[in-house]
């Protein structure tokens, strides 16, 4: 079942376009504890370059993520007591559209296609996964730069993608706008901390080094005003 569906080439291609895949795997920790050779992990890099130990047979998830998923709502759909069990779930209601013990790649694709007809009728066409990935990646880069105090780099990461997403989908534009507002808010806080500092010499030094990193935030003029007062 595992390789017949989740590693099936045709299903992989289908899932990229038409589903969000969720795993509810029980008793993995037991396998790890027993040193089962199937319960091994490999080293991989996370989005921010951090090391992640991902489970070899369920790639892209850590042991903890798999355990948490099985305890989440994902673990509540199989009421048969038998495994494997496949559920096709409506994300808008979080209820099962169809569920069955086992399930072939072909059968799941047919049922997902049928579910999509109803969902598109009710909620319209969703955004493309590649566009969503592009936006999420830009937001992650922006957050990393803002956390490091480089607000100009954070804004730049968003600006590039904002231009590409113009007219694509309002929901993506909104995500980018919110991310931009979060960067400006973080920059405002950093600027306020300097303005309220009692050590003028240090505040001036900090502000001078910050000026370039405020580019694109709309706070450049305010920063220069503060600088003149110091």
């Amino acid at each position: 079942m595992h390789s017949a569906v989740m590693q099936n080439k045709k299903y992989l291609e289908f899932a990229k376009q038409n589903t969000v895949e969720v795993l509810a795997l029980q008793r993995l920790a037991e396998g790890v504890q027993k040193k089962d050779p199937r319960a091994v992990a490999y080293k991989a890099k996370g989005a921010n370059g951090e090391e992640r130990l991902l489970m070899l047979n369920r790639p892209n998830l850590t042991l903890e993520e798999i355990e948490d998923l099985s305890r989440s709502k994902a673990g509540s759909f199989n009421k048969t007591g038998k495994i494997p069990y496949t559920s096709i779930v409506d994300p808008w209601t979080e209820t099962e559209i169809k569920g069955y013990n086992g399930g072939s790649a072909k059968g799941i694709q047919e049922d997902v296609a049928a579910a999509l007809v109803g969902m598109r009728k009710e909620h319209g066409k969703g955004v493309a996964r590649k566009d969503l990935a592009k936006v999420d990646e830009a937001i992650a880069k922006s957050q990393t730069a803002a956390t490091a105090g480089d607000f100009a780099k954070a804004i730049e990461a968003l600006t590039k993608v904002e231009a590409q997403m113009k007219g694509v989908a309002e929901v993506l534009t909104t995500k980018l706008t919110e991310a931009r507002a979060a960067v400006v808010s973080a920059a405002e806080s950093a600027l306020a901390a300097i303005e309220n500092s009692s050590d003028n010499a240090k505040a001036k030094k900090d502000l001078l080094s910050m000026l370039d990193r405020l580019r694109g935030t709309g706070l450049e003029a305010k920063a220069k005003e503060i600088l003149q007062k110091l």
Partner: peptide
Amino acid sequence: FAKTWEAAVIEAKLLNVPLVVHSHGF
């Protein structure tokens, strides 16, 4: 696979596609 149930629901709504939950046992 989605990393959390909540992330899966958000993504599925944005894409407007169903969630496919694979219930397995090790």
